[in-house]
Design a protein around this nucleic acid. Sequence first.
DNA 1: AACTTGACGAAGC
DNA 2: GGCTTCGCCAAGT
Length: 119
Amino acid sequence: MTISSKKTIDDKTQRIWTLVALVPEGKVVSYGQLADLAGLPGRARLAGRALKLASPTQNLPWHRVVNSQGKISLPKGSEPYQRQVAKLQEEGVVVISGKIKLDDFQWQPDVGELLTLPF
DNA sequence: AACTTGACGAAGC
DNA sequence: GGCTTCGCCAAGT
C-alpha cells in the first residue's frame, strides 16, 4: 500500500529519533548536533520538532537533549522542564539553574557508531 | 495562498 | 549574561 497511507513520518524525523536513542546515560546532545549528525546542517528546529512529535512509547532519552548553550529548552519551571532536570540528575549530569556544562557532559559519538547508522 | 509559530542557533550589541 | 535580529523550514491557522 503506497497510495493510501495516512500520516507518513518523514525520514528526517526518523533519523533524529534514531540518533537520540544512541545518546548514553550521563551525556547530553544539542538539537543542532542531532541535526548535523542526521545530515541536516542548520536545521536544529527540525530536531526540536522531531522530539515534540515523539511518542512516550518510543522510550527515547529525550531528556538528554538541550540547546546549544547547554540549557533546557522548555518553559522554565514547567512540568516537563522539572522532569528533564530530575532525570538528568538521576544519571549524574550536573544541572545548575537549568544549565549544563557542555564541556563536561556533551556526547561525542565515535566513528564506528555512526557507521552503523541506516543512513 | 499568506502569515504565524516554533523542545533552535549564530552573531551583534 | 541578557536581548534582538535573522536564517531555517515544517506545520498550523
